[in-house]
Design a protein around this nucleic acid. Structure first.
Length: 347
DNA sequence: AAGACGGGGCG
DNA sequence: CGCCCAGTCTT
């Protein structure tokens, strides 16, 4: 029977699960939603300080909806995947407009909100509304791949389809909130990527991967490909007051909506490029050491160049711009390399 | 179906 | 350095 898996997991959860995470204290729908969005592609330990700061600044969905997007993004800065922050803000507005400020307890309606997909909708239904619904996040995928010895990479549509079937089959009708938390905890603390602790696993005796002594084979690896190198130049323009010029990036694409420095290619003549594109006449003070930034899909090498502005004729703004003392810039949403650069400079 | 999207943690 | 993480959206 399917009930055995959930029963064993629930019994284990009671004594060994995590019951002290910040979003478990007041499990209201907003808290569950916020934590689920932050936890997408991001680990618990990283999320916790961001979660606490965010909720302190935006205690309710209404206050979030009414906030300025820059304010929202500055509290997201450093977490990555900034579309999550923008979607959260958009969804908060929709929730206020369409549902009087409360998350709908309805899966189809949740799925219409930006940033909420199948797994997050399932998590909100189960954890916040105690409704029977399955999730399939990275932890659950790993647990199920091992328990059923599912071959193939979980990102593969056929494999993912199979995993959803298994996840739905195992999810119990009752105690669904505890079960959902339990299977995530099992993946996070016991059925870990490397060195799983099968000796303390509540479902080890039925686990096919363990029977085959091939836990390391599951889940199947993502086919790897060589990731490209992207080289860029950060232009740190300083005016007479010692302020630095920042530009707001477009809402979509890398670091969408965050504040950054003007950027050119290493192939450009820097002073010429500046004059042509922005109207600033500036001279190079110093080229700083190259910053290496590694992402999932490419590597970045950033050359920061410090310049002094001599003259400004007809500034051609390429987007929103502002001059700002380097220390004050951290109040805005800036990407991690920019933050690190500013911190280094102020030392 | 495939690619884009950030940053941190770990072996 | 490679791989992964409480995924979703766009093309």
């Amino acid at each position: 029977m399917n009930g055995q898996f959930s029963d064993q997991l629930l019994a284990w959860f009671e004594s060994c699960g995590r019951h002290n995470l910040p979003w478990q204290q007041e499990p209201e729908p907003y808290h569950v939603w916020l934590s689920e969005i932050m936890l997408q592609q991001t680990q618990v330990a990283t999320v916790i300080p961001y979660y606490n700061r965010f909720l302190q600044r935006f205690p309710t969905i209404k206050l979030l909806a009414d906030a300025d997007i820059d304010d929202v993004l500055s509290h997201w800065a450093g977490l990555g995947y900034y579309a999550r922050g923008r979607n959260l803000h958009r969804a908060a507005k929709m929730i206020c407009d369409d549902y009087s400020g409360d998350l709908p307890a309805n899966k189809e309606q949740l799925l219409t909100l930006p940033g909420i997909g199948r797994s997050t909708a399932g998590a909100i239904m189960a954890l916040a509304f105690k409704q029977h619904d399955a999730i399939l996040d990275g932890n659950v995928k790993r647990v199920l791949c091992r328990f059923y010895a599912v071959n193939g990479w979980p990102g593969q549509p056929a494999v993912e389809k199979r995993l959803w079937q298994l996840a739905e089959g195992l999810t119990p009708e009752i105690n669904v909130a505890h079960y959902t938390q339990a299977i995530m905890d099992l993946g996070a603390t016991v059925c870990t990527r490397s060195k799983p602790q099968c000796d303390i696993c509540p479902v080890a005796s039925e686990c096919l991967a363990r029977k085959q002594e091939s836990q390391d084979k599951y889940p199947g690896r993502k086919p790897k490909k060589t990731i490209p190198l992207r080289e860029t130049v950060f232009l740190l323009l300083e005016n007479r007051k010692g302020e630095i010029l920042f530009e707001k990036r477009p809402a979509t694409g890398i670091w969408g909506g965050l504040w950054c420095f003007p950027e050119c290619s290493p192939d450009d003549d820097i002073e010429e490029w500046l004059l042509a594109k922005t109207g600033f006449s500036a001279s190079i003070i110093k080229k700083l050491s190259i910053i290496k930034h590694r992402l999932t899909h490419f590597r970045m090498e950033i050359l920061p160049v410090h310049l002094k502005v001599k003259q400004c004729n007809n500034v051609k703004a390429m987007g929103e711009q502002q001059w700002c003392a380097s220390g004050d810039a951290l109040k805005f949403g800036v990407p991690a390399p920019v933050r690190n650069l500013l911190l280094t400079m102020s030392e």
